[in-house]
């Protein structure tokens, strides 16, 4: 087993995720302790947080795997994938944050156009028709069945 050739690779993304998980757990634990030290507050949160942080320590070495050149080759994705995923996440975030300010209708319509483009629909006319029809149907359809109004700008 020890003979495995190859070199140690740093999985930066995984490290980042672990840092996020560990950071948020630590922050939550300290925040909970600041609220109260009584068992009625900490009886589950504290042991679970400690366990989770220990598990983080156990996982950290897995961010530095020894991989053969072949595995590294297979593991690398073209940067364009990341760009598309990043763009989709960014527009999805913008969509969720702007719903109430610019209205569900406008936000949905814009997100559909951008989303369809990012996901690979390059025919503009098709994109526009679909986005418009989808938005109108969804706003009226959903509006009819849920018990409170969506903030809207145009529809």
């Amino acid at each position: 087993m020890e003979e495995k050739s190859g070199r140690i690779v740093v999985m930066w993304g995984h490290l980042l995720l672990l840092a996020f998980i560990a950071g948020s757990i630590l922050y939550y634990w300290l925040d909970a302790r600041a609220v109260s030290l009584r068992p009625n507050n900490l009886i589950l949160v504290q042991p679970t947080a400690i366990l989770a942080l220990l598990l983080v320590l156990a996982v950290v070495p897995q961010c530095f795997p020894r991989l053969s050149e072949e595995e590294i080759e297979r593991g690398t994705e073209p940067l364009s994938h990341f760009a598309r995923i990043g763009a989709l996440i960014a527009s999805f975030t913008a969509f969720a944050l702007s719903l109430e300010t610019i209205g569900f209708d406008v936000a949905t319509w814009l997100f559909m156009i951008v989303g369809l483009y990012i996901c690979g629909e390059r025919r503009w006319w098709l994109n526009l028709i679909f986005s418009t029809v989808f938005t109108v149907l969804l706003i009226y359809g959903y509006g009819a069945i849920i018990p409170f109004p969506f903030p809207l700008s145009i529809l």
């Binding site: 989709l88 999805f92 969509f95 969720a96 719903l99 949905t108 997100f111 559909m112 989303g115 369809l116 996901c119 690979g120 629909e121 679909f130 989808f134 969804l138």
Partner: peptide
């Protein structure tokens, strides 16, 4: 390419 944005919107 149609399903992804549509489902994201409906879920939202």
């Amino acid at each position: 390419r149609y399903l992804i944005p549509s489902v994201l919107v409906v879920s939202t």
